[in-house]
């Protein structure tokens, strides 16, 4: 068929080649703007009135970042958090196994000052991130400051922020002393080009 077009309509053949060239290179360029990791690290730290200080870590966090728009998407498997004590791990895991509709937490947001990052110039940038954090299907807006490092072929990101527990656990009695007011969350990501 292509040979037939080539022989009969050379101008059309050139147009088809140009179109194919554009499709290949434009789609390549779009893909090149996305960076991601499947092994972002989220640490949650808090002071429990009874158990004392606790820390849990998840090293299976999916993060995708779009350079053009500044959009960030994150998927966190709740069962991938690891605790030091088996007792805490068991109680925590049982909750999310019995409530599978809460199996994933997610963040969807943007770097709001994306224009201040020069992606062609390696360096450390302070960025503003805001969006919605969804945990246990409760969505709440959040914003924080993060450190964003531009390297030759990859980006690194680090953020530290507080999450108010009662925003995601509405059934807690406001006067209850058994729950901390907030947990501190730290994030580390190493984003590679898709």
């Amino acid at each position: 068929m292509l040979l037939f077009i080539n022989l009969k309509h050379p101008e059309l053949m050139i147009r088809i080649f140009l179109l194919l060239f554009l499709i290949v290179f434009v789609s390549n360029d779009l893909c090149a703007q996305r960076y991601s990791t499947r092994n972002g690290i989220v640490r949650v730290m808090y002071d429990h009135p009874v158990a004392g200080s606790l820390e849990t870590v998840n090293r299976q966090v999916n993060v995708a970042f779009d350079v053009e728009s500044g959009e960030i998407r994150m998927q966190i498997l709740m069962l991938s958090f690891r605790f030091d004590r088996a007792f805490n791990q068991e109680i925590y895991n049982n909750y999310f196994v019995e409530n599978p509709w809460y199996a994933n937490a997610r963040f969807e947001g943007h770097i709001t000052n994306i224009d201040q990052i020069d992606f062609d110039k390696p360096g450390i940038y302070t960025v503003e991130v805001s969006g919605d954090l969804v945990v246990r299907e409760f969505a709440n807006p959040m914003s924080t400051t993060a450190e964003f490092v531009v390297n030759e072929n990859f980006f690194e990101g680090e953020a530290l922020f507080d999450v108010y527990v009662r925003d995601y656990m509405h059934m807690i009695n406001p006067t209850s002393a058994h729950w901390p007011d907030y947990v501190q969350v730290s994030m580390e990501v190493n984003l590679r080009r898709l």
Binding site: R38, Q60, N62, Q75, L77, L79, S80, A103, N104
Partner: peptide
């Protein structure tokens, strides 16, 4: 141990 589906991958630890 199956911890779930990230939307891209099933994770076993």
């Amino acid at each position: 141990y199956c911890t779930g589906f990230t939307g891209a991958d099933v994770i076993l630890e």
